[in-house]
Amino acid sequence: MAHSEQSQTSENRLLKSEDILKVFQVSFFAMSRLPSFPWTFIEEDLQSDKSSEIISEILKQTCLHPLCRKFPPSVRFRRLFLSELIKLEAAGCEPLDQLYDALAEVIGAEESSECYKSYLLPGGGTISLMENVALISEGTTGLVTWEAALYLAEWALEHRQDFTGRSVLELGSGVGLTGITVCRCCSPNSFVFSDCHSAVLQKLKDNVQLNGLKPKTTPEVRVEELDWTSATEEQLRRIGADTVIAADVVYDPDVAVSLVKLLSKIFSCSSPEVLICSTIRNPETYSGFKLQLEKAGIGHQVMTEPVQQVFPYNRLSAIELIRLHRPL
């Protein structure tokens, strides 16, 4: 092989390694399912190079990264992640003391019901969220980030002009991923996070503050209790939203009925842009939501344009984003 060809091959391999390391970092801090990590690439790398350099680099980008010290994923997740790295190392590369030191640290750490998930933004910056380890906790699903919230955040990053200079209301904000992304990247004039569960509201306030968003700044940010069954037109007029968004709020037939009643009140007060993003887990429930919209005279348009993949989540999930139209 000519020298130039060898250089090109080395360069391509370096670029590929950097891409893989980035995937490991993004997936680690978002606590993605371990089978989704590109372990096969690491196995292939170790077959051709018996040094522990690639595992050392993965450690630097994950467990030994400053972000992990400040906002660590759960103890159990880090322990399982390090165990997978040790399996690879045991397959034939040089022993790496740092790997076992990191494992010893998490083995001795106390488990908690809460952990941090961090999401890396394009162009730099990170959103870190305190979440509950359990999917359902304290009687609510609002203490974790769901897939539709990630998709809607990606859509917002592609359509920043839909939020720039506008007053935005988010319904059912949960732990805050979508709203914080909009506030950090899309330059809204103001943003109201909302929910009705006391534990969710407290976690939401903590996460908003954790990510440097404060009242009386730009954008002006508020966290409000908004009960869909008792919200008044006066309250909605006071919020005065130009854009209304919601993600993963259509998961129960009774909740869908309350949501449509609230949307009817919102449309009776003003003419905002309304975007609802849903993971379709139960097609019957989702069809029922659309039927309720139709009965209320609220039209909808399915948004089908692709979005750039920014955050790690299951791309095979059925996720639909709709834009609502004010009743005639």
Rank of each mutant, 00 (worst) to 15 (best):
T9G: 05
F29I: 03
G299W: 07
V200M: 01
C185G: 04
T232C: 02
K205S: 11
I298W: 06
I298C: 03
M303G: 01
T141M: 09
L321T: 01
R76C: 12
D162F: 11
A102G: 06
I55G: 04
I127W: 03
P122T: 10
I298F: 13
Q235M: 14
I239M: 06
L88E: 03
V223S: 00
I55A: 11
Y251Q: 02
S187T: 08
Q235G: 08
D49N: 14
Q161T: 07
H197L: 02
E320Q: 15
R78H: 11
T164P: 00
D206C: 07
A102D: 03
A102H: 04
R76H: 10
P219L: 07
L157K: 06
P38H: 09
E220D: 15
P38A: 15
G176C: 07
R184A: 11
A153H: 00
S187W: 05
G174D: 00
E158H: 03
N189F: 13
S74N: 06
F289L: 14
E294Q: 15
L316Q: 10
G139V: 12
L152W: 01
K205R: 07
M130Y: 01
P72N: 05
V168Q: 01
G125E: 12
R281E: 00
G139L: 08
L171T: 06
T141Y: 02
E84R: 14
A149I: 03
D162G: 04
Y151V: 02
L157I: 05
S230D: 10
E18Q: 14
L150P: 01
L226C: 04
E220K: 11
P73C: 07
I239H: 00
L263P: 02
A109C: 10
D252G: 10
R184T: 05
A148N: 06
E18R: 13
V168E: 00
V249W: 00
K117C: 07
H325Q: 15
K16R: 15
T181H: 09
H300M: 05
L171G: 05
L85V: 08
E5L: 14
S198N: 10
L201R: 04
G299T: 10
L324A: 02
E294A: 15
P95C: 14
I55R: 01
T164Y: 07
D49G: 15
F29E: 01
Y286V: 10
L34C: 09
F311C: 08
V168L: 01
E284Q: 14
L201Q: 09
S48D: 08
L135P: 02
N314G: 13
V257S: 04
S173N: 10
H65M: 15
F77K: 08
R33N: 13
V250W: 02
E131L: 15
A90I: 11
N132R: 07
E5G: 07
Y151K: 06
A199D: 06
E84V: 02
P66W: 15
L152E: 00
C186S: 11
S48F: 04
D227Q: 12
A102S: 06
G174A: 05
S271N: 11
L14A: 15
E105Q: 10
P35N: 13
E234W: 07
N132M: 09
L121N: 02
L129W: 05
E158C: 14
I107V: 14
P188V: 15
V208M: 02
S118E: 08
T164V: 12
E94K: 12
D252H: 15
